[in-house]
Nucleic acid binder design. Structure first.
Lengths: 344, 344
DNA sequence: TTGAAAGCGCTAACAG
DNA sequence: CTGTTAGCGCTTTCAA
């Protein structure tokens, strides 16, 4: 029950505490004889010694901890996983971190909350921030002096590394695809369109594709709410009450699409016959859906992996050149789109 | 950039470091004058002081950290969130912990990995373990000397607190419901059936209900695999290759059911007309499914919340009486079940 | 009501 | 090649 400390090990092995430390950390500047090393290792396993990482962190100023900030989608909501995207991303981050001997300190965040202290508190070695936050909050984080990776944010700042995807291009591909299938009235349905967020880029891509094809962007065809299932249902209602004017929609998140389809089905509107949909993300939901979702695939696992690597690399090299990583996107064709045909 | 420490605050306020500590912790044994308190607080906010929790943990032996161990469903898989159940549970745990000033240290675990050290390392104040693990691994955790909560495990041990649901009863309710709807050949489809796991209880509940009704439990009607979408598809294939002998199935996880339905749809088997399904969990998937899932609802949010409370209470009271918390279940009727009618 | 001092467990110069 | 020493930032007796 009594914790065994480095001193106990030292005593057992008949060496000093620092020697034990050197052996355990493979300290490059010190060189220990095989004999001593062996004795120390034996003492360690005999006593079942496990280093106290808090103490280590105190004196060495590295914690092997990575802080992860996941946005709470909605202020009122307590759950951060209303979108499976976060779960998949977090999985990948956790796995990659663990491979490298790092642990994860996770926290959801309320908009108004000062998440700076969370990190500062624990002396994390780096912070991964998912989503878009107001700039002033981010600025406070700089004072931490550790690498910070922004996932899916277009905040440009030399002090932050970023990892994202070709949001605009993805939206363009999606929209073009619908146009190629004969659709001319195409809705854009997304979560909130915020400065430096992904949705504004996707909106631009959507507009670009429409304009390229000489199609007007109708104000009424643009739906914006929150990134969750419930909003999808709401959007379905709005679509119907606005007169069902589009034959296709580009939706910026699979989870919204799920709700949209559900909402439409409840009103006996068929997908894709009456509304073709190209979605975004390709989370596992996309295959579970009925119909399965034609969607812009992003490699969420890779996103998480790269985020961790950015932290580790930055921590290692100590250089402060900002790195930007953009992952490619591709369209996956499934069953939520059909050709447009004139019913009138 | 330079971290401000308690000493800086002390200097600024013209008091000693210990006084600052007293003020910040509201130490009950010490009593500080309003005047001093005010000066300290002013200095804190002026300097933007944030306590270093590692240091605090070192000297006070509490870390305000809760360790959470999430099983990696499959040895080969790197992702822990193949089942949205974990995401929802973790959300709730995180939220509750944060409300109480605790942070979460999460880790996936490989079966063979010694997750003891993860916790020991960081001096967590408690550990929440989700799922079933081999007993010997758990025993090692006892040496930590902190409260441990087992979620969804039937390991009985005075050193562990447990939180779970009425698995057996839930299965009984589900199976009885199918029987009441006229079904006589009912499949049981689940993840691996392990000692002390939930599925063995659910299997028992299934058997009980069958026997009560005088129905035989057919070996061939029992399918067991892994708790994921892919297995559901596999189970669909098996069901067909074994001759489609059952008119209904009780499936022990919504995520498996999703795969099952998909697998059946691919083979043009209709749900519920050809196979009625009662599922388990009622994760958000259940409503997204087509058809929506009739399923045994469990309150995942409550489960996470209680898990955290068990830790906090145990840490506070220092008593070591084992607490057991069992949450109720109920059937939610949706669209994946219909009455049996004789087609032959 | 406050401060001085010891120490939590570890690392990192610096000696030897 | 190894030990001594001095902290890391905080809490907590104990004394004043």
């Amino acid at each position: 029950m009594k914790r065994v400390s480095i001193k106990d090990v030292a005593k057992e092995a008949g060496v000093s505490a620092s020697t034990v430390s050197y052996v355990l950390n493979n300290t490059p500047t010190e060189t220990i004889s095989q004999e001593t090393k062996k004795r120390v290792l034996e003492a360690v396993s005999k006593l079942g010694y496990v280093p106290n990482l808090n103490a280590r962190s105190l004196s060495s100023r590295r914690s092997n901890l990575i802080g992860v900030l996941i946005p709470q989608t909605e202020p009122g909501k307590e759950l951060m996983f209303s979108n499976p995207f976060y779960g998949e991303l977090l999985s990948s981050i956790e796995y990659t971190a663990r491979q490298h001997g790092y642990h994860l300190l996770i926290s959801g965040t309320k908009e108004d909350q000062d998440y700076l202290s969370i990190a500062q508190n624990r002396g994390v070695d780096g912070v991964i921030i998912v989503g878009t936050y107001p700039g002033e909050n981010l600025n406070a984080l700089k004072t931490l002096g550790v690498p910070i990776v922004l996932v899916d944010s277009y905040v440009k700042d030399d002090d932050f590394h970023t990892i994202g995807i070709e949001d605009k291009e993805g939206a363009r591909i999606a929209t073009r695809y619908l146009i190629a299938r004969g659709h001319r009235h195409i809705a854009f349905i997304s979560g909130s369109i915020r400065e430096n967020g992904v949705n504004i880029k996707r909106y631009q891509g959507y507009c670009d594709a429409m304009q390229e094809a000489g199609l007007p962007v109708d104000e009424e065809a643009v739906y914006s709410g929150t990134v969750d299932y419930e909003y999808g249902i709401t959007a379905a209602d709005q679509y119907l009450s606005r007169g069902k004017k589009q034959s296709a929609a580009f939706v910026t998140a699979d989870v919204i699409t799920m709700g949209l389809i559900k909402g439409l089905q409840q009103k006996h509107v068929r997908v894709p016959e009456e509304l073709s949909i190209v979605s975004f993300d390709d989370v596992y939901l996309a295959q579970m859906a009925y119909p399965t979702l034609t969607t812009i695939h992003q490699d969420i696992g890779e996103k998480g992996k790269q985020a961790v690597h950015l932290i580790l690399d930055a921590a290692r090299s100590k250089e402060h050149h900002h790195t930007e990583c953009i992952l490619p996107l591709r369209l996956v064709e499934r069953d939520s789109v059909c050709d447009w045909r004139d019913d009138s």
